[in-house]
C-alpha cells in the first residue's frame, strides 16, 4: 500500500507504526516500559525544539519534561487512526511553549454546534490519515534545503516571515514564495494519493 513515490524509507514507516502501537499501549495500560521508548526517541528532539526559542538549555530541559508529562497524561486521547505521532507530539510541545510564554492561541471546538464537520466518512479518514503521514514524510524528504530551512525557522524559532527575511538577508517575497512552494509540494503529494 506504500506507493513508491512516497520516498519515505520502509524502516522509517515501521518505526512510525511502532510509535503508534507504543502510544496506544501507554494510553490503555499506563505502561512505563512502553513509554520509555517514546521518551528516548522524542526527548532529545523536543529539547532541541524548545532550545530554538529559549536559547537556554535548562529552560529547554524543563519544557521538554513538561511536554513529555503531557504526552504521558494525554496518551489515552491519541487516536491511532490519526496515525501521526510526531505531528501530535509537535502540537503538544507547541502548546506547552505557548503556555510558558503566557500567550493565548484560541482554538476551534469540534463539539460546538456551529462547527462544520468534514464530510469524509470516518472509515476513509482512518485509512487516509495513515497513508497521509507516510506521503508527507516522503514529500518532506524531497524539499530543497532552503525551503526546509524556512519551515524550520517558522516552526522551531517561531520567526515571522519578516524576521526570517532579515536573518537570511533575502527579500520578504522570497520567504513567502519558499513557504508557498513547500506547501504546494506537500499538498500535491497528498492529493497524489487518490
Amino acid at each position: 500500500m506504500n506507493n513508491k513515490n512516497s520516498g519515505g524509507s520502509e524502516a522509517e514507516d515501521l518505526a512510525k507504526a511502532e510509535m503508534v502501537r507504543l502510544l496506544s499501549i501507554v494510553g490503555r495500560d499506563r505502561s512505563a516500559d512502553a513509554f520509555e521508548a517514546i521518551f528516548r526517541f522524542y526527548a532529545p528532539r523536543i529539547r532541541s525544539f524548545m532550545a530554538a526559542k529559549t536559547k537556554d538549555r535548562q529552560a529547554a530541559e524543563e519544557l521538554m519534561q513538561e511536554t513529555m508529562t503531557a504526552v504521558w497524561n494525554k496518551a489515552g486521547q491519541f487516536d491511532p487512526a490519526r496515525g501521526n505521532v510526531s505531528a501530535w507530539i509537535y502540537t503538544i510541545a507547541r502548546n506547552v511553549r505557548i503556555d510558558a510564554y503566557r500567550r493565548k492561541r484560541p482554538e476551534f471546538d469540534m463539539n460546538d454546534p456551529a462547527f462544520v464537520a468534514d464530510d469524509v466518512a470516518p472509515a476513509d479518514q482512518e485509512f487516509q490519515q495513515i497513508q497521509e503521514a507516510q506521503l508527507l514524510r516522503g514529500a518532506m524528504a524531497t524539499l530543497p534545503e532552503e525551503q526546509l530551512d524556512v519551515l524550520r525557522r517558522a516552526f522551531f524559532d517561531e520567526a515571522s516571515h519578516s524576521t526570517i527575511a532579515r536573518d537570511l538577508g533575502v527579500p520578504l517575497g522570497t520567504v513567502k514564495s519558499r513557504i508557498r512552494l513547500a506547501f504546494e509540494k506537500l499538498r500535491s503529494s497528498l492529493e497524489g494519493r487518490l
Binding site: S86, A87, F183
Partner: peptide, 25 residues
C-alpha cells in the same frame, strides 16, 4: 492546517541531537 502540523512533526523527527537520555528519563 493538519498537513502543516504533519510537516512540523516531520521536522521534529529530524531534529535529533543525540544525547544520553538516562538522566532525563
Amino acid at each position: 492546517l493538519h498537513a502543516m502540523e504533519g510537516a512540523a512533526g516531520a521536522l521534529l523527527d529530524k531534529a535529533d541531537e543525540s544525547a544520553n537520555e538516562d538522566e532525563a528519563w
